[in-house]
């Protein structure tokens, strides 16, 4: 999930465009303090929005009823992030799930 940090960011109201970037080193990827996921933080390469993303574990097909879940340890490697800055970017199609500028990039999961 994404939180916007208003005061720090320097947001550019560029028109929506599906732009794909490669791996970005400018994002930090940290395990979260409770050990239940990762916190990824950085600025969108297109619109400059400051993004903080929580990656947590969940049931991929369905969330189950068992008490002790089998947690699948994620492998190290690149993971995709789509911009979800929450600002209005002109021309964003209604079919776009993510509420951002259309930029998409990767970060390296340790």
């Amino acid at each position: 999930m994404t939180q916007r940090k208003g005061p720090i960011e320097n947001h550019r109201a560029v028109p929506w465009a599906p732009t794909e970037f490669g791996l970005l080193e400018t994002f930090s990827v940290m395990t979260d303090p409770e050990g239940t996921g990762y916190v990824v933080e950085g600025s969108c390469p297109t619109c400059g929005a400051h993004l903080k993303i929580d990656w947590h574990f969940g049931n991929p097909g369905y969330k189950g009823v068992t008490v002790s879940p089998d947690v699948v340890r994620p492998k190290a490697g690149p993971r995709t992030i789509n911009c979800d800055c929450g600002h209005d970017h002109a021309g964003r199609p209604g079919s776009a799930y993510d509420d951002g500028c259309g930029a998409s990039w990767k970060v390296m999961l340790p």
Partner: peptide
């Protein structure tokens, strides 16, 4: 049909894709 009830993966696109292919 219903899916295993006790699996948890990191909810990123890459992990979901890998899990889906295995599934």
């Amino acid at each position: 049909a219903a899916g295993e009830t006790n699996e948890r993966i990191l909810l990123t696109g890459e992990d979901l894709r890998e899990w889906t292919e295995g599934e």
